[in-house]
């Protein structure tokens, strides 16, 4: 164990000389091999659940209860995926998830960008108070508002609609805070120079402020995408038994219930549901990490 902790030093240096591998000589090489072994073992543990799920999803129905479970899909049966897609309605659920998530992400970005702009660059009465009001929403978990929100949505006639699924999430206190901070870190002279050039609010916002705050906007987008895609409680409550707008997360519950005797199909559905975000993770890892750690580390 001690040797595992010996290189807890991260890549943060003030000197400009490129310092590559920490001590790469003689025992350094053995240490590197040891590190790889340890990391690979840990990676295996983290990945095993997903891996076994993939293997099981490819098993032919009659082999699923076969013990011990096979390590490799010897005769992969891809039909489970098409079954999940069509009979399990996963195609529809995925489409619904895409629609709902797109509405939430773009809506959140839109409201957040304008509000953050106002709080960062404009002066108006009750600005501080309104900002605190905005922030205070972070203290109210959505679960706490569930009872009345369901009633409200029903009264608005939005039960079982995309509106009901998405409208309550079209604003975010956390996002507004984050983007306002990013805006405020832009040099004041930018705003003044833009004013001298005769830029109005919109031109300044979209031509200057927003492009400069792009990393934060990207982090925010990925963060809200993740939240929206993985929502469970609200979609469950608000989509009732309507297949037409049910999201993929609720679809999994449905799949689990209806395909109980076809576990391979359920697992195929799980992989279908997980794949889009796993791919996005690989592409947008940096933005995601930034969004997730924004509150933790300055």
């Amino acid at each position: 164990m001690p040797s595992d902790l010996s290189t807890i030093s991260p890549a943060k240096r003030r000197t400009n000389a490129p310092r590559g591998q920490h001590r790469t000589h003689k025992h350094g090489r053995w240490r590197a091999i040891g590190s790889y072994l340890l990391l690979s073992a840990l990676a295996l543990i983290v990945l095993i659940p997903l891996y076994i799920t993939v293997v099981n999803s490819l098993l032919q129905g009659n082999l699923i209860a076969h013990q011990p479970p096979p390590l490799f899909p010897v005769h992969p049966d891809w039909s489970t995926y098409s079954t999940a897609w069509t009979e399990g309605d996963l195609g529809i659920y995925l489409r619904n998830s895409v629609i709902a998530t797109s509405i939430i992400v773009s809506g959140q970005l839109l409201t957040t960008i304008f509000a953050a702009y106002a709080f960062a660059f404009l002066e108006f009465p009750f600005k501080r108070t309104l900002f605190v009001v905005m922030l205070s929403t972070m203290m109210i978990p959505f679960e706490v508002t569930l009872v009345t929100n369901l009633t409200t949505i029903t009264k608005l006639g939005w039960y079982n609609t995309f509106a009901g699924l998405t409208v309550p999430f079209l604003a975010t206190g956390f996002g507004t805070f984050l983007l306002r901070q990013a805006f405020r870190q832009l040099p004041k002279e930018l705003r003044e120079a833009a004013e001298l050039d005769g830029y109005g609010h919109f031109r300044f916002l979209f031509r200057i402020a927003l492009p400069l705050a792009r990393p934060t906007v990207a982090a925010l987008a990925v963060f809200s995408f993740l939240g929206a895609w993985n929502q469970y409680l609200w979609p469950l409550v608000v989509t009732g038994d309507n297949n037409a707008i049910r999201t993929v997360q609720i679809g999994l519950k449905q799949l689990q219930a209806t395909q109980a005797n076809q576990i391979n199909v359920t697992l195929a559905g799980t992989i279908i549901a997980a794949a889009p975000l796993l791919i996005l993770l690989i592409i947008f890892q940096k933005q995601l990490v930034r969004g997730l750690t924004a509150g933790a580390v300055k």
Binding site: T15, N16, A17, R19, R23, T24, H25, G28
Partner: peptide, 20 residues
């Protein structure tokens, strides 16, 4: 001048960098 390797010499004495 900066980047001439002088700090690396020092760090090798300390054991923070290991000579190749």
């Amino acid at each position: 001048p900066s980047g001439c390797g002088k700090s690396t010499v020092l760090r090798m004495v300390a054991g923070l960098d290991e000579p190749d």
